[in-house]
Design a protein around this nucleic acid. Sequence first.
RNA 1: GGCCCGUUCGUCUAUCGGUUAGGACACCUGGUUUUCAACCAGGUAAGAGGGGUUCGACUCCCCUACGGGCUGCCA
Length: 402
Amino acid sequence: MPATSSLTTTRFAPSPTGWIHVGNLRTALMNYLIARQNGGQFILRLDDTDQERSKQEYIDGLKADLDWLGIRYDRVEQQSKRMARYADAAEALKAAGRFYECFESPVELDLKRKKQLNMGRPPVYDRAALDLSEAQKAAYRAEGRQGYWRFKLDQERIEWKDGIIGDISIDAASVSDPVLIKADGQVLYTFASSVDDVDMGVTHIVRGADHVTNTATQIQIMKALGGTPPTFAHHSLLTGPQGEELSKRLGVLSLRDLRARGVEPMALLSLMARLGSSKPVELVSSMDELVAGFDVGSFGAAPTKFDAEDLFPLPRHHVQGLPFAAVKDRVQALGVPEAEAEAFWAVAKGNITILDDLGQWWTLFRDGAEPVVDEGDRDFVRQALALLPAQPWTTATDGDLG
RNA sequence: GGCCCGUUCGUCUAUCGGUUAGGACACCUGGUUUUCAACCAGGUAAGAGGGGUUCGACUCCCCUACGGGCUGCCA
């Protein structure tokens, strides 16, 4: 084996079209841990080929989130800066006869799909453009139509051994030839990603199960590019407590939100490195421990139910064990007088799950509370109150009451 | 509709034909604690349904049901 191919290289390739959330984090962390485990490279790759939706704001946010978690990348790549390379790769595939130009409009394609569905047939592209003569193509262009390009799949069963799913195969005939270059010239994710993974020497790819079908086509694209497909592992997607789509609830699960609420990075990482795996979830104190105890193969292929509430036992455990020095600033920011700050922390820490909870306890300490007494208990409580010794009550008071 | 994956305690899962079906989290009980949390000890709790194959099936095969994913000139 050549020495160059033995360097484990993984990547986290988010598209900067939103904030990262717990689902993304799982993917990022798994790839990161694999690189660290093997002394390899971890690349942060910004899949920003969709210029419409990608925003600098999200790139900054995503870096800040990774930084907060201590997930360090060895280098950053950006697809929008590699357009020339994609153009070259596209030319090579055209020359090799693997790219073919099509002229159907999105509306026409949509119509075709609907017809196929109505006839009970799978909505797979019929490859009509393959039969277009040069004269016909010229005629379309003369009409002002812009061609878009599809990758011609070899009609065979594409097989691979998935690090989580195991042996899996997909028949290329059941998949449409993927469009890789749009009519406006924009390179699509499936293509850019394949070119990058080959060029950057990526050896292991862990991603969500939503990419399984993509993997089949990408394997063929990578091979056509002269590359060797990496090892793939597709982790199951997170669903809500009832098995419903998680996306609806993602608002409360964005990393920036969790950070704002005082969730500690190691608590979050400890959970995400184990959730869905056969290994017990345990709070670790360092990234090294996470690296040492990580095993992609221990994850199951079934969808993972995830209740946001399950996120908090670990942070609670962690936060309650923090020394005063670690939270001093946070406590004082609440307006707790310096003289009382440490005592306040000592009493309040046992009652919180995340640091945010301190706020309501300080309010209680400062303002006192309105007693909640059931109607039927009023007399009893009044009598009890009357029997109580005079304030102030101290730790000795309880002893006096016997 | 087609294709892919899946279904074991409430949750995440172990088991690779013969087990008292194991662990972790949650929960309950007891201990400890001024209270709560933490901690310690113990406990409740599971193989979707139906057919096969086999001496024997959670495990292998088929069907059904259910869940997830994909089926974009998104990623």
